[in-house]
């Protein structure tokens, strides 16, 4: 993986293509959970930025964290919510185990604001700590914390109502 990154940094098209294969499913998930219907566009923009700016990445091992940051920001930009503002009455993340909940997750995500979705994704899909999530989104930790709390509460409510 790291050899691949190094080769891609040198501009080797095959390595860049392999990197796309490696990153695309994961980036696709991040982007579509945050940007929803604009997920594909967000993914495309993310991957273009990643490949273009790859030479600036000093530590190949830090690739994922770097890509995650770009993906979250591009997804937010795509939804017109580039600046993260805490929004009244947001959602929340239940622990979902079975596939019957697929529709519920989608439905609920749609009712959240993009930044709330981003917080949810980072905490519950990516398993980041609140501090890490705050870092990715350039927010104070407290804002993420309260945002997450509201997000979860609202998500659970909607889910249980549903």
């Amino acid at each position: 993986m790291e050899d691949q990154v190094t080769a891609a940094q040198r501009g080797d098209p095959l390595a860049m293509d392999a990197l796309l294969t490696e990153l695309a499913p994961w980036v696709g998930r991040l982007c579509s959970a945050i940007a929803l219907s604009r997920g594909e566009d967000a993914m495309q923009e993310t991957l273009i930025l990643v490949l273009r700016n790859l030479p600036t990445l000093r530590e190949p091992a830090a690739l994922r964290a770097w890509v995650r940051r770009i993906a979250v920001r591009q997804s937010l930009r795509m939804t017109g919510d580039a600046r993260v503002v805490s929004v009244p009455d947001p959602p929340e993340v239940p622990v979902l185990q079975d596939l019957d909940t697929v529709m519920d997750v989608r439905e609920t995500l749609m009712r959240l604001s993009p930044s709330q979705r981003a917080v949810l994704v980072l905490r519950d899909l990516e398993d980041l700590s609140e501090q890490e999530a705050a870092e990715v989104m350039d927010l104070p930790e407290g804002t993420v914390k309260s945002g997450l709390h509201r997000a979860r509460k609202s998500f659970r409510q909607r889910w249980e109502e549903g």
Binding site: D17, L20, S32, Q44
Partner: peptide, 19 residues
């Protein structure tokens, strides 16, 4: 990944566009 979360694939067209 947790089940239920939406996802998109990188279509060949978009792959070409990215490259």
């Amino acid at each position: 990944f947790a089940p239920g979360w939406p996802s998109v694939d990188l279509s060949p067209e978009r792959r070409l566009a990215v490259l």
